[in-house]
Structures are given as C-alpha cells and as structure tokens.
C-alpha cells in the first residue's frame, strides 16, 4: 500500500483538453453568432444605417484604428488606476471589517451603498470635488470596483477553518500573527476573485465615468458618446466591440495571473476554497 500521490498523466491530459475546450467552445459560439448576423444582413438587405453587418463593423474599426487604440489606452489607464485604488481601499476596509464585528455591523451597510448608488447621482459630487478629467474618471471606476473587493476579501478573512483557528489559539498566537500568518494567506483566493470581478466593473466605471465626469479627451466612453451622436453605426459598433474586448482581455489576464500566483507561490487554486483533507489511500 502506497501513501504517495502524484498527478497521473491521464489526469493532466484530460485537464488540458478541458482548458482548450474552455476557449474553443465560446469562440465557436461567437463564430456562429457572427455568421448568423452577417447572413441576416445579406438575406434581408438590411440598411447599414439601421444595422451594419460584422464585416462593415470590422472595416470601420480598421479605418479608425489609431483613434480607437488611443481611446483604449486612455480608458484602460483610468480603469487600472481606479482598480488599483479600489484594491488598496477595499483590502484595508476588509481588514477593518475582519477585526471587529462592531465595525462590520456599523459600516457594512455603507459599503452596500457603494453598489447601489447610481453613478449619475454622485457624478456632480465627484465633479465638484475633483473637477472633470482623468482623476474623476478613475475615482468613478474605483467606486464601482470597491464593493466586490470589500465583500470578497472580508468573506475570505472571516471564513477560516475552525480547526486552524484552534491551532493558532493553542500556540497563543497574537491577533496580529493570526491575521498575517493565517487569515491573509487563506483570504488570497477570495481577494483575487474579488479583483477579477472588480476588473470588469472598473472598466465599466471608466467608460461611464467618461460619460458623466470626463473632460471629453478621447477615451472609449467619450468616443461611444460621439459616435452615437453622429449616427455612424458601424464605427459605434466597432467602439463598443473594442470596449467589450478590453474588459474580456483584462478579466482573462487577471484570472491567469491570479491562478498562476496562487498555484506557484501558495499551492492553492481559485476555487475560493483551501484544499481540504483527503482520505488516506
């Protein structure tokens, strides 16, 4: 009877097939969707003023590629600034929430407000305090990203296995030691999945921010606004498509980065759970 375990080659192969399928199947769905769209535009001879086909959208996107790239760069910069801000503020808030039930009870409702207050409503406040421009856009983006990070990280810091807490009590660990050596590492998968959700929100925040608190410098949001006013639908679709692509790329990048860091440095996965005990073999 062996007490050893290892990754069987078959297990590795099947998981590789699964991750290829994870990419291929959604791409297939996209291809079918685009083909149907293009086919419908041809079949019913829909006017490009009403609905441009994917081909026309791609052509339009290529035509305005320089200004699109510039807009992507600006919006991405604002979103990443906002995301970084929400990571720092969200993590600190989660630390405070994890240390005291009183603090948690007193301030959690206000954290929920971050999620529910419409951005249009706080836009004037942001403009009054920061003026229109990049920093206001970044702040709106941070506000949208903050909530997922606070909830996810707080859950992670609090949801520590009772046996592990007993272990730390047994050795008379201080509150600080328990936070640094147990709660923080145990919460890492939660923090990363919080960041993952916040990354999407922060891009939405940056685009919407440009609508309401931007100074009109070309970002994806102001570009969408301009294109929809000028009724050049193919260019509007191209801009919206690029904005979606940006969100997907950032989400994917953070997922891969997070998974890699967790696996390499901490031997954990993004399932949101610490690997539990296995039965003996």
């Amino acid at each position: 009877m062996s007490e050893r375990t290892g990754n069987s080659p078959a297990g590795v192969r099947s998981s590789a097939i699964r991750s290829v399928a994870d990419v291929l199947v959604p791409l297939l769905v996209l291809a079918v969707l685009l083909a149907t769209w293009q086919g419908a535009v041809w079949w019913w001879r829909i006017s490009p003023v009403l609905l441009p086909g994917p081909g026309a959208v791609l052509t339009a996107g290529w035509k305005i590629r320089v200004s699109l790239l510039e807009a992507v760069w600006r919006t991405a910069l604002a979103a990443l600034t906002g995301l970084s801000l929400s990571i720092v503020l969200g993590t600190l808030t989660a630390f405070a929430f994890s240390q005291s039930a009183v603090v948690r009870r007193a301030f959690y409702p206000y954290a929920v407000l971050l999620q529910t207050v419409p951005i249009i409503a706080i836009a004037p406040i942001v403009i009054v305090s920061l003026g229109r421009g990049f920093s206001s856009v970044a702040v709106v983006s941070a506000i949208l990203g903050l909530f997922p990070i606070i909830t996810s990280t707080t859950t992670g810091l609090l949801q520590v296995d009772g046996m592990l807490l007993d272990l730390f009590r047994l050795y008379r660990a201080s509150r600080w030691q328990t936070l640094l050596k147990l709660r923080v590492p145990a919460a890492l998968p939660y923090l990363i999945s919080g960041i993952r959700i916040a990354s999407g929100s922060s891009i939405v925040g940056a685009i919407v921010g440009e609508f309401f608190v931007g100074d009109g410098t070309p970002g994806l949001g102001s570009m969408i606004q301009r294109k929809s006013a000028s009724l050049v639908l193919s260019e509007l679709y191209a801009t919206v498509g690029v904005a979606t692509l940006l969100g997907t790329v950032v989400f994917g990048f953070i997922t891969v980065l997070g998974e890699t860091v967790l696996r390499r440095r901490f031997g954990m996965s993004l399932g949101g759970r610490i690997s539990g005990p296995r039965s003996g073999d």
């Binding site: 296995d161 046996m163 592990l164 007993d166 272990l167 730390f168 050795y171 008379r172 660990a173 030691q177 050596k181 147990l182 590492p185 890492l188 440095r265 901490f266 031997g267 954990m268 610490i274 690997s275 539990g276 005990p277």
Partner: peptide
C-alpha cells in the same frame, strides 16, 4: 486534530516551523 489542519500554502517543513514561529 481530527483532520490534519495544515496550512496549504506552506511546505511540510514550514508547517512544522509554525508552532516555533508563533
């Protein structure tokens, strides 16, 4: 404990060091 209660992000040796660190 009833279960190993090990810190999954630490190696075996680092898990052994924990009581001494604390």
């Amino acid at each position: 404990f009833q279960q190993p209660a090990l810190l999954p992000w630490r190696t075996a040796l680092q898990n052994l060091r924990l009581p001494l660190e604390l």
